[in-house]
Amino acid sequence: MTPLRDRAPAPALPGVVASPARRKFGFVLFGATLFLIFVGAEVKSRHAGLSVPDWPLSYGQVWPKMVGDVFYEHGHRTVASAVGLLTLILAIWTARTDSRMWVRNLGWVALLAVILQGVLGGLTVLNLLPTPVSATHATLAQVFLCLVGWLAYTGTKEWNSPASTDPVSARVAFRACAFALIAVFIQLLFGAWMRHSEAGLAVPFFPTSESGSLLPQTVDELVVIHMLHRGFAVIVLVLVLRAVASVARRLPEFGLHATLIASLVLIQVMLGALVIWEEKSPIITSIHVMNGAAVLAFTWLLTLRTWRCLAPSPTSRVIGVDANRHAMEQA
């Protein structure tokens, strides 16, 4: 059997259009979405969500005076509009140039998601920040980032080439990544719940109080919500580092990607501690939110990359082909 590293790169599948320009555009949108998540987090961190009371216009205007906290809220709306426009362009571009129907549909789903996200943003303002709507708005942002990342990835040569990796190793790595991905997503839900319940400082010390206690003297609902996020972070850390180790060992070609995730998750823990120590400093809290989204998105992309290795060819990476069965046959 030829060693994996010595294998020649597999050719791209004929008929699949993977325009370099569209691929780059997709990754630009991915970066813009990450920035949008930071800008949106700034709105929440600075309690500026209601500084513009109307929607879709701002004080009845397209461009109000950018004074006080209007800068954050209207700035968020502006960046969101730009991301919406970029998504529209990418969806149309994909629909007109990509031969894969499921990729074209993915573009439309991304567009639908960004529209829904805008409507949720409007509803949260008009209804004075109800926690369920605000938390859904925060969570959908992360899902949208993953969708955009996936869309960009489908335009890469890697995605459109047959996998040349040992499927058994890929299967083990994929499972580890999938578990990590689920854990990160649950953690983001806990984070959104904590943030929008104003429970971020319900436990104002880290890791323990002066008396060495993990919990404050009185335990209430906010403390429970806070501790869910803090406690689950340990599980996330373990699962992500396990996935990173698994990928690094079994699929070394993804080692850099895995290292990036390991770095991001360790930075995320540090940022979480800083949020407490700096008493929810807005900028640190917003970076914590953005970095959390990055951990999710890059774990999602790594999961997709390992999943790709399970499938025999790009065409089989379409819903309806049993990639797992193929992997078993290969083994």
């Binding site: 309690h47 004074v67 906290d69 209007v70």
Partner: peptide
């Protein structure tokens, strides 16, 4: 009836 309702301006905190 309600006591001490806080009025705030979210533009100027």
């Amino acid at each position: 009836p309600e006591e001490a309702i806080v009025f705030k301006c979210d533009v100027h905190i």
